[in-house]
Nucleic acid binder design. Structure first.
Lengths: 326, 326
DNA sequence: TTGAAAGCGCTAACAC
DNA sequence: GTGTTAGCGCTTTCAA
């Protein structure tokens, strides 16, 4: 039982190897009855065109590189899934690279996979631009949640959802609200803070800015201390993980959510739904983010350069916000 | 600036392409000064052997397929990371496939990547054995958290940690304890239940078995109802996610953890640490699981067939367990 | 220790 | 529409 190739099929059917090849790669070029015969025999023999050989001659790998800073961040898995799914639909595979928050390793990892993929999707709020530029220089690249001149990107825009969240807090009677600022190197963190700031000014609420804190559970926990002493009754946490930290930190001080303080998260990761109390937060359109990124990469691969896209998040009130304690 | 190949290097140095090839693939076969020259020039030119070409002739892809049932399950990301890291150390890449809990798609996805990798790691507690056998038949395969005759596997063994957890509950005064059973199709779930059962018999505590429930937040929430009415004061949840569900379900009934009821999770996923109260649970040795799987796959690839390995989990008391309410 | 030559399995001109 | 002919960039006998 030797391996089946276009040659073995060609021989069996008394056609040339090219015809067999065409039957798979450009079916419209071969007469339909011949094509059907070929496909049928191939099916019966369990033939699959050898991707490696195809790749060697065409130069297309059929793989896309997915670079994530930290797959352990709860925001990532659903995004990875969405990308993976969109890739499979396009008959592409996903080569995953997790930088493990090690910025020194990033460049090496990127160059490493660049040679094995057609293009890359980079989800990296904090990588140095120089690193990203390296990647962009090698292969068509799409950025997620980060914008950079001349590079296609999809970002989640929370501006209006944050406004809604603010309105919700005001309705609940909150007049002094804290903002836990995220890492200053994070593009998303900056935009978020700015959006809250603008809203607060217009809504005439007292905004107490705290931080910056790490975008982590411990960051949130640290923030809780400042928040508890700030006189604010509600807080915008940097993201859901930080919000969990805030809840924990408040609990350490005997403060309950939402009875004593209200907390708003961001992203709506799994955490937000399973925490007790469940988190009022802003749902990021992860699925859209992922499929859009893949679609844009496809365009970029086709030689166009797609316009940056922003997808709005949506506000979801849950149980971590309640009436302001008097 | 044409692309640099073994030929361009060979020409430049007046050696044959074979020599250049050897300098990279079997350096010991080429005289050291020649080799140094070649390597130096290659370095200067930024030459990297073309993996595709190499792959075509050798048949090794340098990639390992990682098949996960649901990357959204919080147990997975750290595992994926560990595997990815171990792979990078061996100069291999990871082709990720997420089945999205769609068992019908599994087979297709597996066959799909089988052709693109040297071997596979499958983390699939619930896939049909037939599907797994398919994979195993195609490429060397290592199973994580599942055992199957004749297939190398690494599993997490929680028996002794569960015993410890039980002891901990008894010390806290619990005498009637509930067991939330996981999905009956899950290999891990069965072993867990069995371990708890055996412990309970020996420890002379009343064990109330409930379920089976889904290994999910909602499954836990459903379980909470049964638990609340069971008369038990503590519960072994199927995993941490289910434990979160239990906490939520109890809270719906006005029951607090750990004041009114104690809850023990399993796996020690991120969730467990960021929940308030933090979960008493059993830490799965994910890093070890991942690196061991990669090591075993490497062995399998080398033609050996490695013995199944079990790695013990460790008990971690936290804040979700407390003295039994009287 | 090195070189020549023959492929790995496929695609893509080009000619028929 | 189909066949012929060259490769894609590398590894690997086999001889020298």
């Amino acid at each position: 039982m030797s391996k089946v190739t276009i040659y073995s099929i060609a021989e069996e059917l008394n056609v040339s190897a090219s015809t067999v090849s065409r039957a798979f790669s450009r079916p419209e070029l071969v007469k339909s009855d011949v094509r059907d015969q070929i496909l049928a025999l191939a099916e019966r023999l369990g033939y699959q065109p050898n991707k490696t050989a195809r790749r060697l001659v065409t130069g297309v790998t059929g793989a896309i590189g997915l670079f994530v800073p930290d797959i352990t961040n709860p925001f990532m898995p659903p995004l990875v899934r969405a990308i993976q799914q969109a890739a499979v639909e396009r008959d592409a595979s996903v080569l995953l690279v997790d930088a493990e928050e090690d910025s020194r390793a990033e460049l090496g990892l990127i160059t490493r996979i660049a040679g094995q993929v057609d293009g890359m999707i980079i989800v990296s709020p904090r990588s140095a631009s120089s690193v990203i530029k390296q990647a962009v220089g090698r292969k068509p690249t799409v950025l997620i949640n980060r914008v950079m001149d001349g590079v296609p990107s999809v970002v989640c825009d929370n501006t209006s959802a944050l406004r809604e969240a603010g309105g919700h807090l005001v309705e609940l009677g909150h007049r002094t609200i804290a903002l836990l600022r995220g890492p200053s190197a994070s593009w998303a963190a900056q935009r978020r803070s700015e959006a809250v700031r603008i809203w607060a000014r217009k809504a005439d609420v007292a905004l107490i800015e705290l931080g910056p804190f790490d975008a982590s559970f411990d960051g949130g926990r640290a923030g809780a201390e400042a928040f508890a002493e700030s006189g604010a009754t509600a807080v915008f946490a940097f993201d859901d993980l930080a919000a969990c930290g805030v809840v924990a930190g408040l609990s350490d001080r005997g403060l309950r959510v939402p009875a004593h303080r209200s907390v708003v998260g961001c992203d709506d990761v799994l955490l937000a739904r399973v925490l007790t109390p469940s988190l009022t937060t802003i749902t990021a359109p992860v699925d859209d983010l992922g499929t859009t990124a893949v679609r844009m990469l496809e365009e970029a691969l086709a030689g166009n350069d797609p316009e940056p896209i922003r997808l709005p998040g949506t506000f979801v009130p849950r149980d971590s916000t309640g009436p302001a304690a008097s």
